[in-house]
Simulated scan of single mutants.
Amino acid sequence: MDVPYDLTSYVRVLKLASTPSWEEFSRVALIAGAGVVLVGLLGFLIFVVMNFLPGAGA
């Protein structure tokens, strides 16, 4: 593990990184939020099926 080489590569990556624009940030946040809602909805539907249909759950 060459520590000076590792540190210079990390610094180079940080110099290339930039703050996203508001439009880019809001689009990513919207897509991530939609994914969270869809996963929650899927979990809720599985819960409903397992609890209210006879013989569907343990």
Rank of each mutant, 00 (worst) to 15 (best):
A29V: 03
A58S: 11
V36N: 01
G33I: 03
E23K: 15
L38N: 00
L45V: 12
G55W: 00
A34D: 06
E23I: 08
P4D: 12
F44G: 06
N51F: 05
G40R: 01
K15W: 05
A56C: 01
A32T: 09
I31A: 15
Y5T: 14
A29R: 07
A58E: 10
M50D: 11
W22V: 12
K15F: 05
E24F: 04
L7D: 11
E24C: 03
V28H: 04
L38Y: 01
V49D: 03
R12P: 00
A32L: 12
L45I: 11
V37S: 03
L16Q: 14
A17H: 05
G40K: 01
T19I: 14
P54G: 08
F44S: 07
F44N: 04
K15L: 11
D6Y: 13
F52V: 11
D6V: 15
A58P: 15
D2V: 03
L53Q: 06
M1V: 09
D2C: 07
A58F: 08
R12Q: 10
S26L: 13
G55D: 04
I31T: 12
V37W: 02
V49M: 09
A32N: 08
P4E: 13
N51G: 01
L7T: 14
P54A: 07
V13R: 14
G35H: 01
L14S: 12
L7E: 15
G35A: 08
L41K: 01
I31D: 12
S9E: 14
L41E: 01
L41I: 07
V36D: 02
F44K: 04
S18W: 02
P54T: 04
D2T: 03
Y10T: 09
D6Q: 14
N51Q: 09
V11M: 13
V49H: 08
F25C: 02
G40N: 05
V36Y: 05
I31C: 08
L7C: 11
R27F: 06
G40E: 02
S21M: 04
P54W: 00
M50Y: 07
K15R: 12
E23C: 07
D2N: 15
R12N: 13
V39G: 01
Y10W: 09
F47Q: 03
Y5F: 08
V39F: 04
L42R: 05
E24Y: 05
S9A: 11
A58Y: 08
K15N: 06
Y5D: 11
L41Q: 02
T8F: 06
P54K: 06
G55H: 00
A56W: 01
A58R: 12
V37E: 00
L7N: 13
A58N: 10
D6G: 09
K15G: 00
G40I: 02
Y10A: 14
G33L: 11
L14Q: 13
D2Q: 07
K15H: 06
V39L: 14
S21Q: 05
G40Q: 03
T8N: 10
L41S: 06
A17Y: 03
V39A: 14
A17S: 15
I46F: 06
G40D: 02
A34R: 10
V28L: 09
G57N: 09
R12Y: 04
L7R: 15
T19H: 08
R12L: 11
M50W: 10
L14P: 00
F52M: 09
S21H: 02
N51T: 06
G40T: 05
I46P: 00
S18A: 14
L42E: 02
